[in-house]
C-alpha cells in the first residue's frame, strides 16, 4: 500500500506551557547574570589576582601546627556534642511529629519547630547564639544542635511515617505497654535508617563546625578567618587541607559504623 510510505513520525511536541516556562527561565537567567556586574576588565583582573592568590597558597605552611590542632580539636568536639544533643532531642520530637502515631494537635507544633530550625543556615544560628551566650564553643554547640534537630527531626519523622502499622498493631494486640510497643514494633523498623541519618548528620556537623568559627562560635573557622584577613595565605592553605583531611577521615569512620549496623 502506498499509505505506508506516506506515514511520518514526529517527535512528540513539547507542550507550550513547558516552552513558555523555559523561555521565562532563560530571560530571568540573563537578567540575574547582569546583576553580577561581571565586565571583561573585572574578569581579567580577577584572573590575575586569582593566579597570584593560588601561588601564595602554596606551599602550605604547617609551622603553627599547635594552633591548627587546637582549632581542629575544638571543631571535632563541637561536632560530636552537637550531634549527640541533636540526636537526643530529635528522637522524641520526631516521634511527636509522626502523623501516623500522633494526633494533629501534637504533630503540628513539633513540625513547626523543625521547619524553623531547618530554615536557617547553622552559621546564621551561630551568630544569634554568639550574641546570646558569648564567643566560644558553647555558641557553636548550641547552633549545630538546633540545626541537627531540624534535619534529623525531618528525616526521622519521614522514616517513622513510612513504617508498617500492621507490625505495630500486632505488638499492641499482645497487650504490651506503650514503651514496649515502641521498642518492638517501631524501633526495629527504623533503627538502621536512623543510624544512617545520624552518621550523615555527624558528617554534616563536622563540616559546619569548621565554619561556625567565622562568626566567633568556636573551632578552626575562627583561625581560618583570621588568617584570611591577615593575608596569611600559606597558613590558610594548611588549614583548608587539614579540614579536608578531617572530613574525609570522618566519612570513612561513619561509613564503617554504618556497615556494623547494616544501615
Amino acid at each position: 500500500m502506498a499509505a505506508i510510505a506516506e506515514r511520518r513520525w514526529v517527535v512528540a511536541p513539547v507542550h507550550w506551557a513547558t516552552r513558555a516556562a523555559w523561555f521565562a527561565f532563560a530571560v530571568y537567567f540573563v537578567y540575574a547574570l547582569s546583576h553580577l556586574e561581571l565586565t571583561p576588565a573585572r574578569f581579567l583582573a580577577g584572573l590575575d589576582y586569582g593566579y597570584k592568590f593560588l601561588t601564595k597558597l602554596f606551599p602550605p605552611d604547617f609551622q603553627r601546627w599547635e594552633l591548627l590542632l587546637k582549632g581542629l580539636k575544638e571543631s571535632l568536639e563541637i561536632a560530636i556534642l552537637a550531634s549527640v544533643l541533636g540526636l537526643i532531642i530529635s528522637l522524641p520530637v520526631s516521634l511527636l511529629a509522626a502523623r501516623n502515631l500522633m494526633p494533629t494537635w501534637v504533630t503540628w507544633p513539633a513540625r513547626m519547630v523543625m521547619v524553623v530550625c531547618r530554615s536557617f543556615h547553622p552559621v546564621i544560628i551561630a551568630i544569634l547564639f554568639v550574641k546570646a551566650v558569648g564567643f566560644g564553643a558553647l555558641a557553636g554547640i548550641l547552633a549545630l544542635t538546633v540545626a541537627s534537630l531540624g534535619f534529623l527531626g525531618k528525616l526521622f519523622t519521614e522514616a517513622i511515617e513510612e513504617i508498617s502499622l500492621k507490625q505495630v498493631e500486632a505488638v499492641r494486640a499482645t497487650g504490651a505497654p506503650f514503651m514496649s510497643v515502641i521498642a518492638f514494633g517501631v524501633v526495629p523498623q527504623v533503627f538502621s535508617r536512623f543510624i544512617g541519618f545520624a552518621s550523615y548528620e555527624l558528617d554534616s556537623n563536622l563540616r559546619n563546625s569548621t565554619m561556625v568559627g567565622i562568626v566567633g562560635a568556636g573551632g578552626i573557622g575562627g583561625t581560618l578567618f583570621a588568617a584570611f584577613q591577615r593575608f596569611d595565605y600559606d597558613f590558610v592553605c594548611a588549614i583548608i587541607l587539614s579540614i579536608i583531611g578531617m572530613i574525609v577521615v570522618g566519612e570513612v569512620l561513619t561509613n564503617a559504623v554504618k556497615k556494623v549496623f547494616r544501615a
Binding site: 563541637i78 560530636i80 558569648g134 554547640i141 548550641l142
Partner: peptide, 18 residues
C-alpha cells in the same frame, strides 16, 4: 562524648545562663 565534654572550653555558668 565524655572526652569532648571534659576538654571543650565551655564555661558552666554560661550554660546555665543560656
Amino acid at each position: 562524648v565524655v572526652m569532648s565534654i571534659r576538654t571543650v572550653e565551655v564555661i558552666p555558668e554560661f550554660i546555665l545562663d543560656a
